[in-house]
Amino acid sequence: MKQVSAGWDWVLITIHWLTALTVFSMFAVGLWMVDLNYYSDWYKTAPHWHKSIGLLLAGLTVCRVIWRLLRPRPPKLGSAFERAIASLVHLLIYLLLFSLFVSGYLISTADGRAIDVFDWFAVPSFGQLFDDQEDIAGSIHFYIAWTLIGLVSLHIVGALKHHFIDKDVTLKRMLGKKHLS
């Protein structure tokens, strides 16, 4: 059995909120940047940043999962049904995040080109892995992004329900509040 702690690790708290901010920003930027005018100042910059931040978040999420599995977590709260749903949603959010990273990566690397991460380093391509790769990966990336936002909304509703209706510490402990009864 997994060890149980009083609250969340500060590393996980930081990554959680950083990921939340990034996911919403990336979603908005992603929808906006594909309709940019060719002469827009952002035409090249926005996709470059979107890809750079996406790959950095992918790396961070790998570390996050490892950290999360190694460290104790606070107990799940709520009814058995709520706990099961929460676990399922959390698992799906992780799966969707990774699907998003992979599909995004596959769009830009379909022709063998590497992806430059802020001109700091380049993530190499595996080449074309299947036919119509950039189009198929592009559609998947688009629909997964919307699905993720949908699940995150459910996640937020759940957190607010714990906080305002059940009046438990679910949300508080993700804000780093210690010594909760």
């Binding site: 996709p47 769009i107 830009s108 379909a110 022709d111 080109r113 119509d132 790769q133 950039e134 189009d135």
Partner: peptide, 16 residues
């Protein structure tokens, strides 16, 4: 038309 090839996957996706 989907077979357009300008030797750049992102651009080809946009062109399609």
């Amino acid at each position: 038309t989907a077979s357009i090839d300008s030797n750049h996957a992102e651009r080809d996706k946009h062109l399609r």
